[in-house]
Write a protein that binds this DNA or RNA. Structure first.
Lengths: 177, 177
DNA sequence: CAAAATTGGTTGTAAAAAGCAACGTATAAT
DNA sequence: ATTATACGTTGCTTTTTACAACCAATTTTG
């Protein structure tokens, strides 16, 4: 396959996908959310090939999303547990499940319900919001070069200053020549 | 590779990944968010091989995330535009970018800033919330079999009724025997 | 405590997917 | 009318994944 790496792309989405974008990886994370800890349980629950599972677990541990710990105190056999970094992906997983429920499975065929433990009511839809809590639709979100933007990213944006002094960023649709 | 399909798994995450989980696919969606519409712009912006791009675009159109439309009225040459189904993935993309900013790139190196167009302020962190808006942490989220759960999923859960009549679901850690 | 079964992998091989470069048309620009 | 650009497709190579067989260490069972 000689698959190209995303890690040199200056884009946090590419960075994230480099870590969790491989085939099976996110399903392993989901399985960990479900409480699975043992190699053989991951294997039989997912139906993944053992060598691929082994490889993915190694990478997830390397990247700090899972941690190995003794299955029983002092034992050599290990369990895999989510770290904070791994648990923090919960928004991504929930957003994906909700999208899948809505657009692929259909809400009436949702295989899993996610509820608020405190009330038992279904959780809300994951949304993009402003810092003060207003829901933001697709077109309410503006893009700008960030603090880590490089030359290539700056070239994608066009800075304009309106006559009242406000700065506006326009994203270029086509490649600059 | 003879890669196994996720589409027979009864899990909306697997269904979603079947559509957008392939290498490059989510980066193409991101590129579409950025306003890219033309084949050659996708190609040169991402550095993706042309045949792979061609394949991914076909699949995205097939699955209804992108739509082809004449580049100019009456022309045969096409542009690719996001559909509602595609735009609806914005929560996933934003959640992933924020996770990448936080855990991989580091917030001070974020290449892109996402702002509220109305105020210019940075958008908030994507969160899982209850329907009435309380933020839910990882452990506040409970799992239950949903309306489309099959036998296998039901076997993963253990239903218990507390003595005040409330129903509780416990997820089984290991495979049932 | 010895034998059997389970766990947590590794190794080898075949098939499929990704990467690369060259080639072909149809449209757009000069 | 000629040239250049856009949007792919085809053919070949390299890398991954899938599948099955094997193996050592640990647990369980009789």
């Amino acid at each position: 396959m000689k698959r190209v790496s995303f890690s040199d792309q200056r884009c946090s989405l590419a960075q994230a996908l480099e870590v969790i974008g491989e085939w099976w990886t996110l399903l392993i994370i989901r399985e960990a959310y479900f409480g699975t800890r043992r190699f053989s349980d991951f294997q039989s629950r997912l139906g993944i090939a053992r060598n691929v599972l082994s490889d993915r677990l190694d990478r997830l541990v390397e990247n700090g999303l899972l941690q190995r710990e003794p299955a029983s105190p002092g034992a050599k056999r290990v369990h895999y547990r989510l770290t904070d970094k791994g648990r923090n992906l919960v928004t991504v997983v929930v957003a994906l499940v909700q999208w899948g429920d809505r657009w692929v499975s259909g809400p009436e065929n949702a295989p899993i319900r996610m509820v608020d433990r405190a009330t038992g009511a279904e959780i809300g839809d994951v949304q993009v919001r402003s810092q003060d809590g207003r829901p933001l639709a697709f077109h309410d979100i503006g893009l700008q070069p960030g603090p880590g933007a490089d030359q290539a990213i700056h070239e994608r944006f066009q800075e304009t200053v309106t006559n009242d002094g406000a700065v506006r960023w326009r994203i270029r649709r086509h490649m600059a020549e």
